[in-house]
Design a protein around this nucleic acid. Structure first.
Lengths: 144, 144
DNA sequence: CTTGACTCTTGACCAGACTCTAGGGTTTAT
DNA sequence: ATAAACCCTAGAGTCTGGTCAAGAGTCAAG
């Protein structure tokens, strides 16, 4: 990780600040295997090079796109070890499928709730509330 | 819960089978306060009336629509104690807002991933893979 | 030199919704 | 009568992604 001019001079506090995550998160990512064991100062302090900022940002961006840390680990391994592009693409496409499935799920929920909210006057008490009734009697939609 | 002819004759195994959940889930719902403490046989076995099947299905349908167990608890309380319709509607509308936010989030992710997947040939090794590069360099999109 | 800010390790804790284990007692079928 | 299948309790474990606490060592400023 220290190829050319990347001296390890950042303490964990500075690193985490620059990467935009908490100190504990950095140590957690290290334990998780997402970050390599860093160099240490004589007194045992972790010392990082600037590379690590980029690596943490990579992790955060991947997470922002819906990848789990396990999946991020795979992506990082592919990057570190020069894997095949097709592997990256496959991960991406699997994630797309999952995301689409979730969107479909949520849209189904939204449709039901919207319909029910539209049917409910919001006045009076709860007997004959169409929402409560829909939940009480198995009907049209199926809430898995 | 035993208003008219609803004798408590179901053991927890039968109940859970008919309701389509695991035995442990029934006990968990009881601890959680979603199900009232059931009658007991002389030897301490829980005994349920058919009502409870409906109640568990209510819970499952509400969960299927995205309500958390805390929210389901509220809905059940409104049902049990004859709350106002407006309270039910408010819960529903708050849930709708949450669901829409989640959908937006996922759509944003999908758009980015789709674009990236489209740019990636899938051939060769990972250097110059547009997906890896997008994750490496902060760009256009912002992965929270 | 002392104070305060920083870092270290190990290990516990959070939410949410279950799921399982251990070590019993009970009921039912053969 | 005895085995299989059921039920009981209390409490721990699961998953994900962190976050916090305790107790101790280290470093920079005044």
């Amino acid at each position: 990780m220290d190829t050319l001019n990347n001296p390890a001079r950042l303490t964990i506090g500075r690193l985490s600040q620059q990467a935009g995550v908490g100190i504990d998160t950095v140590r957690f990512y290290e334990r998780r295997g997402l970050l390599p064991s860093p160099a240490r100062s004589p007194s045992g302090y972790r010392l990082y090079s600037e590379d690590t900022i980029a690596r943490i940002r990579f992790i955060r961006r991947a997470k922002g796109l819906g990848f789990t840390l396990d999946e991020v680990e795979n992506l990082l391994r592919l990057q570190d070890q020069g894997g095949r592009k097709s592997a990256v693409r496959e991960l991406t496409e699997r994630k797309l499928i999952q995301i689409n499935a979730k969107i479909d799920d949520l849209q189904r929920m939204r449709n039901v709730l919207q319909k029910l909210a539209g049917e409910c006057s919001g006045k009076g008490n709860v007997d004959s509330c169409p929402i409560i009734e829909a939940l009480s009697n198995e009907d049209e939609y199926d809430g898995t």
